[in-house]
Amino acid sequence: MTLLECKNISKKYGEKEILKNINLSLPSDKIIGLLGKNGAGKSTLIKLINDLLTPTEGEITVKGKPIGVESKRSIAYLPERTYLDKRMTVQAVLTYFSDFYDNFDRQKAEKLLAALDLDPKERLLKMSKGMQEKVQLVLVMSRKADMYILDEPLGGVDPATRDYILNTILSNFAQGASVLISTHLISDVERILDEVIFIDKGQVVLQESADELRTREGGSVDEIFRRMFRC
């Protein structure tokens, strides 16, 4: 079943074309990697899907309907940079999420946070960057969503934290939901991906099953990516 569809999406800032005629169809029940170099247009595409930017041309639909309030309910989005007020305590953030999202499972979030040995009264700004990333991931993954969109969830954290993040993604996405992970740290995530999308200079250059790509091209997704986009 198609969960999300981008039809002829373009995004321009003045003369500068960030995304050029993107056509994408994302199925349900898959973990999909959105892979591209810095500046390829990954975050712009993700912001368009989350209705935070308006496309210059084209249309995006989620479950057959144009994006809007409904799609914000069905998509759980982890932005690259946090929108949370870092003076908030963990407890306050949980209440904030409960208020905002009717599909937020507070108990689940509390359980996952307890496993992190966190004091609920601790303020976000007192935590390490890795811990802040974990807390935000827990919040996002505790929503019962149709699609999870994670923008660079592994950026700037140590390998042990990366493992925690990947495990949390694997064990917590809702049954039948899809996960879209944007990253340039391909070798760290490729094992959990069903499908990969390569994006370069604002265009989708490939969308394929990860195992089929490995078989066809020979080598890891990381290697194939490096070969295709050598600078």
Partner: peptide, 10 residues
């Protein structure tokens, strides 16, 4: 999937 850290579909 958890034990192997690979995708449930795989």
């Amino acid at each position: 999937a958890m034990m192997t850290k690979v995708n449930p579909n795989t």
